[in-house]
Amino acid sequence: MAAVYKSLSNQKSAQKDEKNADGPRKNKQRVLILSSRGVNQRHRHLLNDLAQMMPHGRKDSKWDSKSKLSGLCELAELHNCNNVIYFEARKNQDLYAWFSKVPNGPTVKMYVQGLNTMEELHFHGNCLKGSRPILSFDAAFDREPYLKVIQELFRHTFGVPQGARRSKPFIDRVMGFTYADGKIWIRNYQITETEQTTDGKDGENGEAEAKKTSKSRGKDHKELDVGLVEIGPRVTLTPIIIQEGSFGGPIIYENRMFVSPNQVRADLRRRKASRHNARAEQFVERQARKGDMGLRTEGGVKKPLDELDSRSLFA
């Protein structure tokens, strides 16, 4: 009997092995997380928050140069990473996030807005450090090719691969990506499971409700209610360009709806300046008008000297 069992079990395991060998390549991701110089405190905290949630990530020191981003590829390869998240700060206030697959692309550059770090949000959600998140994508991500690319990149960078070194075996976190208003909204929630509260309902509602609940209770007694509690951080990203290569190569998508924050600021300043300019112009005009009427000592037309003026009379 034992022999039969052994042979059967062997067969089974062999099948399993075959299946594993046949199966698709393993999802194996490592992410290099780093920022440029000149990030401010909030940017840094965001980076830390993200890095904390990514056990497959490797945080590196700040990247010095802003022009030669291709060096990042080498750095990533040096660290054995095949994904890069690079936060580029400009003017101490604007933050751009680059997501890239390393040896050969693609790369997405996005503008970071609506940034709230975990600390300043005071949400009472919490999760295991390094638990694998469920990635929830909006349906819009399947409609457009460029969003598909972005979706795939997010899946690689934010999804913790199965069996990652420091990952935890339980799942208690959802990471949501939603495309709305031309931006990608990223949220983090903790999954909470609570006992279904049917007892209170029975008393309050009618018989039909009671019947329904009793039926459901009969079917699966231990069914738990799933709820979400936000953890943070909150980020909104506006995609700007997608490059075919990794930190280089031809641009295969460009968002023409994106207006650079510099432009916005310049417009604001110009609008403010225009008010002042109008006032200054008015002033000059007024002075000229006064001069024309002879109300000013210099410039404009002088009053002709009157013969009856006391100065000419008693000269």
Binding site: S136, R143, D181
Partner: peptide, 21 residues
């Protein structure tokens, strides 16, 4: 074709969320 646990990503079916906002 692959177990869900390998990727754990879900693309919501139906209308995009933007239409609900």
């Amino acid at each position: 074709s692959v177990p869900f646990a390998t990727h754990q990503s879900i693309v919501s079916s139906g209308e995009p969320t933007a239409s609900a906002i």
